[in-house]
């Protein structure tokens, strides 16, 4: 265990921060500009995982296990979200024969 922590600490924290920000931003930009629902969901996963990574990094640096506990929560949540999300996507596809986000324009009053 110690060796894992040492490995993690072997890289400066700033690198983690920058790396996670970049991945997160890629996720955000992907969500904003891509129109395929599945890709959008993948981008959401990207964002979640970037946060997970950061949580793990901080947990290791500060010697606090609760960060890693959160990671597990997030993973469970992400799994549930994907399950529900994909189900919705399938339903949408059945109805519209498309997974384009523009085809989902009925979500209004």
């Amino acid at each position: 265990m110690d060796s894992v922590i040492q490995h993690i600490q072997g890289i400066p924290l700033n690198h983690y921060l920058i790396f996670c920000s970049v991945i997160f931003s890629i996720g955000v930009i992907g969500v904003l500009i891509r129109r395929n629902v599945i890709i959008i969901m993948m981008c959401v996963e990207l964002m979640l995982n970037s946060v997970n990574l950061l949580l793990a990094a901080f947990s290791a640096y500060r010697g606090d296990a609760s960060g890693q506990v959160f990671v597990f929560f997030v993973m469970a949540l992400a799994a549930a979200e994907v399950a529900v999300g994909l189900a919705i996507v399938i339903m949408v596809y059945r109805n519209t024969k498309s997974v384009d986000i523009e085809s989902l324009s009925k979500l209004r009053w």
């Binding site: 904003l32 959008i40 989902l104 324009s105 979500l107």
Partner: peptide, 17 residues
């Protein structure tokens, strides 16, 4: 104000961000 509720998911996400 109702116009903001356009129904486009992309727009909603944009607003969220």
């Amino acid at each position: 104000i109702r116009q903001l509720q356009s129904g486009h998911v992309g727009f909603y996400i944009f607003m969220m961000v």
